[in-house]
Amino acid sequence: MLSRLPASSLQSLRLSANAHSSSLLTTTVRNVSRVRYVSSNSGASSGAKSFLDSRVTLASATLFAVGSVAWYTHLYGSLPFFGEVHANSPAEEGLHPQPYPWSHNGLFDSFDHASIRRGYQVYREVCAACHSLDRIAWRNLVGVSHTADEGKALAEEVEYEDGPNDQGEMFQRPGKLSDYMPPPYPNEEAARAGNGGALPPDLSLIVKARHGGPDYIFSLLTGYVDPPAGFEIREGMNYNPYFPGNAISMARVLFDGLVEYDDGTPATTSQMAKDVTTFLNWASEPEHDERKKAGLKAVILFSALTAISLYIKRFKWSVIKSRKIIYNPPADKTHH
């Protein structure tokens, strides 16, 4: 569209604007309007003229204007100079969680497995009353947070239905390492009925499934406060600034000293929230430690290979780049 615009389209605009302002400008403008193409102009005044009237200037000014509006829109979420009305305040979309210094944040950092073990204890004693964890089997804990014997002992505490036996009947048996963690409710309807219509989500992948990941989970667990003045909250709901909509069915569950850690760590609210978040992060990403270790190896190997191939390229090309081509005209062999 810009290319169709004649180069002099700006001139006519400026001609009317500047015609009476200064005699010097008027003469230059008259000069230019006589000459069709700016590029064929010469002289000192035509330098500024051609800059102002060139298509490149027009295109780049347009690009600048569009770009700055786009940048503003991206940054602030709305067009500049246009008022907007929202039904929700930003707070009601859910407060953004603060980034926390997780012990597994860094590129080389593994999970803190002592924290995973404590977090499992918090999950088992607190969260498991309502939340299932159906993608984690007892065997997954072995070698991560528990020994094989401990894992077997944990599994045996739970009865699983198995069968059919040779009479064709189902029977109950103690759990094995290969069994998955038992759900607190037999089905979704029972879970809703037990929680005032709200379904407690399965926690197997919850850290991956929420914006903000572990920061969000930690903030949600520790973020229960009294609702601000004027905030209407329904019976059975609780106020949490980090939850979208701010009204969450889950009440605050973590209180200081709720569980007793077997390694003697003081069970404060934030400690338990941190441990259970680390545990859930492990449940979402059980491959995490191996992945980072393999990534480290891959980065080392691939950067070494890149360096070698760059060196070989320069080595092979050095002859080509430093050669000279000399043209020796053939001697004139035609004898006149």
């Binding site: 080389f108 950092d109 593994s110 497995h113 002592a114 073990r117 070698g143 991560v144 270790k293």
Partner: peptide, 13 residues
């Protein structure tokens, strides 16, 4: 890796 993550991994516990 083991040196960097000393005390955090399962084999340490």
């Amino acid at each position: 890796w083991d040196n960097w993550n000393k005390g955090k991994q399962w084999k340490d516990l």
